[in-house]
Computed example of a mutant assay.
Amino acid sequence: MTGTDAVITLERLNHSHVPGITALYHEPVVARQTLQMPFPSSETWQKRVETDNERVVQLVALHQGTVIGSITLEQFPRIRRSHAGSFGMGVASQWQGKGVGSKLLAAVLDIADNWMILRRVELSVYADNEAAISLYRKFGFETEGLFRDYAVRDGVYVDTLSMARLRRMPKCD
């Protein structure tokens, strides 16, 4: 069972997910679309789990107990930027295009909007990652700029887009 028929649950990242999230980012297709180095150690993820910071929300998507995606939303710590945050995400290759990214993004944007009261959510995405760009646009993100030769991927410099979603804050009566 895959895609819309599959039962996908979201949980806050915890110690029991470390082997699964390590395996997720060991996938070459997943790792090449992030700014992380390939083959992260489980110790790297263990340290991220141990981070106790209410400005950081780390979620995993699970199918039958297996980690199939993750997203991290971080509110910026500086006072003058505390109205903003950024996120990064990854979805297992066999689950891409099946709604996992939408489910993860909807969850963190709900937290950003209704719990952290973020006005601005930012991201960087490789300029050739059309599927991700389409997903972000679906959620109201707009391109703000192009960073040329921003990162190295597969031995060559690649461009990224800076995207953000701004939301109007409700007025209090």
Results as ranks from 00 to 15, higher is better:
Arg80Gly: 06
Trp115Arg: 12
Ile133Cys: 07
Arg48Ala: 01
Ala84Asn: 06
Gly155Val: 01
Arg80Asp: 08
Arg167Ala: 05
Val57Phe: 00
Glu122Ser: 11
Ile8Met: 09
Leu73Val: 06
Arg78Tyr: 11
Ile79His: 14
Phe141Gln: 02
Gln75Ala: 11
Leu35Glu: 08
Thr22His: 04
Pro28Val: 10
Ile68Leu: 03
Met163Phe: 11
Gly69Ala: 05
Asn14Thr: 08
Lys98Glu: 08
Tyr157His: 11
Thr160Val: 15
Arg167Ile: 15
Ala164Val: 11
Lys103Leu: 15
Val57Asp: 00
Val30His: 00
Thr51Gly: 02
Ile21Phe: 00
Thr51Asp: 04
Pro28Gly: 01
Ile117His: 15
Val56Ala: 04
Glu43Ser: 13
Ser82Trp: 07
Ala31Glu: 06
Thr22Trp: 06
His83Ile: 12
Arg165Trp: 13
Glu27Lys: 07
Glu130Asn: 14
Leu13Gly: 00
Ala106Gln: 13
Arg12Asn: 05
Gln33Asn: 15
Thr22Lys: 04
Gly3Ala: 04
Gln58Ala: 10
Leu109Trp: 07
Ser86Arg: 12
Gly3Met: 07
His15Gln: 14
Tyr136Thr: 06
Gly20His: 04
Val57Tyr: 02
Pro38Phe: 07
Arg80Ala: 10
Ser102Trp: 08
Ala6Phe: 05
Leu10Ile: 03
Asn129Gln: 13
Val18Lys: 01
Tyr157Val: 03
Asp149Lys: 15
Glu74Ser: 13
Asn129Cys: 13
Asn114Trp: 08
Leu146Pro: 06
Ser41Tyr: 06
Asp113Thr: 15
Ile8Glu: 05
Gln64Ile: 09
Val67His: 04
Gln58Ser: 13
Met169Trp: 10
Gly88Glu: 08
Tyr150Ala: 15
Gly97Glu: 02
Leu123Pro: 01
Phe39Met: 14
Ala131Ile: 12
Glu27Cys: 09
Ala84Gly: 05
Glu144Leu: 12
Tyr157Arg: 15
Arg48His: 05
Ala23Arg: 08
Val108Gln: 02
Ile21His: 00
Asp113Met: 10
Ser134Gln: 15
Asn114Ile: 10
Val18Tyr: 02
Ser16Tyr: 07
Phe147Val: 13
Met37Ala: 15
Thr72Asn: 06
Trp95Met: 04
Gln64Thr: 11
Ile117Arg: 14
Ala127Asn: 02
Arg167Asp: 05
Ala23Asp: 05
Arg168Glu: 15
Ser82Gly: 11
Ala107Thr: 05
Arg55Thr: 09
Leu118Asn: 01
Val29Ser: 13
Gly145Met: 10
Leu13His: 00
Asn53Arg: 02
Leu62Thr: 00
Lys47Asn: 07
Glu142Lys: 15
Met169Arg: 12
Val152Phe: 13
Ala92Phe: 05
Met37Thr: 14
Gly97Asn: 05
Glu43Ile: 12
Pro40Thr: 08
Ala132Pro: 07
Thr160Pro: 05
Lys47Pro: 01
Leu62Val: 02
Arg120Tyr: 12
Arg81Phe: 13
Gly99Pro: 02
Thr72Glu: 08
Lys47Ile: 04
Gly3Asp: 02
Arg78Met: 14
Thr4Trp: 08
Arg153Ile: 13
Asp159Gly: 06
Val49Asp: 00
Gly90Val: 03
Gly65Asp: 03
Leu10His: 00
Val108Arg: 04
Trp115Gly: 03
Gln58Tyr: 08
His17Arg: 02
Ala31Lys: 09
Glu27Met: 10
Ser124Pro: 04
Arg80Pro: 03
